[in-house]
Amino acid sequence: MSKGFQVAAGATLIALLLGWYAATNLEEGASFAYYQTLEEFVGSPDASSGHHARVHGYVSIGSIERDVAARSVRFAVQNQPPHAGGSATGTLPVLLASLETPDMFKEGAEVVIEGRLSQDPAGARFHADKVFAKCPSKFEGQAAGAPSDLPAKNS
């Protein structure tokens, strides 16, 4: 066996082992995250079946209600940024079962919500486990708060 062959075989073996390790340790959806726009989500099977999903949208103006007693935040997301003159039709009500909201979370903010859609007595509502927010791109070198604030975009 030549030396090159030995090295190649060793590297392949290590790569296979690491690949196997990755495959057995990664939960579906936990690591390979991407998100849908609100428009895509509404018509998708994820919405009707109540599957775990990540949805991108904008917080509707005047929709944020912090309920301290119930330890939750209610708000609505819409497809278009409210400042851009987009209509507020087709908003999705969201319930976040925590008072923990990111710095950039405010009316009009671009957000990604993570959770599942379920049918409440009052109608369909998105139960979010997590909210990521991004500030409007004003600066060339703009930061988005915590490094993990906004996952990469599903374009």
């Binding site: 690491l18 390790y21 936990a30 690591s31 390979f32 995250a33 991407y34 993990s148 996952p151 599903n154």
Partner: peptide
């Protein structure tokens, strides 16, 4: 993923932590 599958997927901290831990 954008180049191959046409949609952008990101791996999060669990991916890196998993290997770093090993």
């Amino acid at each position: 993923t954008e180049a191959v599958l046409g949609n952008r997927q990101a791996v999060g901290a669990p991916w890196f932590n998993m290997f770093a831990k090993l």
